[in-house]
Amino acid sequence: MNTITSIGTAPLIELRRATKHYQIGENPVIALKGIDLIIQTREFVAIWGPSGSGKSTLCNLIGMLDSPTTGSVLIDGQEVNDLSDNARSELRNRMIGFVFQNFNLVPVLSALENVMLPLQIAGASSSVARQRALERLAEVGLEKHVAHRPAKLSGGQQQRVAIARALVTDPALVIADEPTANLDSGNARRIIELMLNINASHGTAFVFSTHDQRLLESVKRRVLMQDGEIGSDSQPERPAAQTRIAGSRP
C-alpha cells in the first residue's frame, strides 16, 4: 500500500483505498489495488508505467469517468462515489477538462464550436461561449483556424483545440490521457510546453498518463504505476514551470 501526499493545503483530488475490478469474460481482473493518492491544486502530475499497470484506470477514477469498486474518490473534499450521474456530469463539466490521446473532437463542429461545447453544455449563452472559446483558441495559437473542422487540422492543431476545449470552463484540473502519443516529436514538444505554460500561468492542475520520456522529464511529480499499485512517486529537482524542454523555444 502506497500513501503519497503532495505538499499543499486543500487536496484537489483524494483517493482512499480505491480499487477497481473488471470482469473480462470469466476472468476477474484487478486493475487497481487499494490506491491512496492526494493531488493538490496547481500540480503537474505524470502517471506513468507499463501497459496494463492501471494508469488509465486511475485517470478515469480521478476524472469521474468511472467509479471505484471499493474505496472512495474525493474531489475538492467532496465524496463523488455517491453522487447521481447528473451531479457527476455537472461536476465533471465544471471542474475537470479532458484531453484524449485521439483528440476526440466532434468532427461536424468547427474548432471554435468544439471549444464552445463545454460552456454550452453548462448552459452559457452562445455569445459568452464564443468569446471565451476565441480567447482560448488564441491562447493555443489557433486564432486563424477557428472555422476549420477537425479534418482540416493537423494532429498537433487538433490536440491544441482539445486543450483549448479542456480549458474553456477554467477547470481546476485537466486530465490528459497519453496526450502526445499520436503526435510527431515537434508537435509533442509544443503540446508539452503549452500544458506547462498553462499550468504555470493559470494554475490549472494537470494529471496525465504517458509513456513519453520528454514529458516525464519536464514534470515536477511522477507517479509510477506497477501492477495496479503505485510503485513510486518522484519529483524532479526543477519545478515544472521552470522546466525547459529539449528543442523548445526559450
Binding site: G63, D85, N86, S89, R92, F98, P107, L117, P118, I121
Partner: peptide
C-alpha cells in the same frame, strides 16, 4: 460511440 463517450466526459447528461 466514442463521440458519445466524449460528450459524456465533457459533462453531457444521459438525457442530453
Amino acid at each position: 460511440t466514442r463521440e458519445i463517450g466524449t460528450l459524456r466526459a465533457l459533462g453531457v447528461k444521459r438525457r442530453g
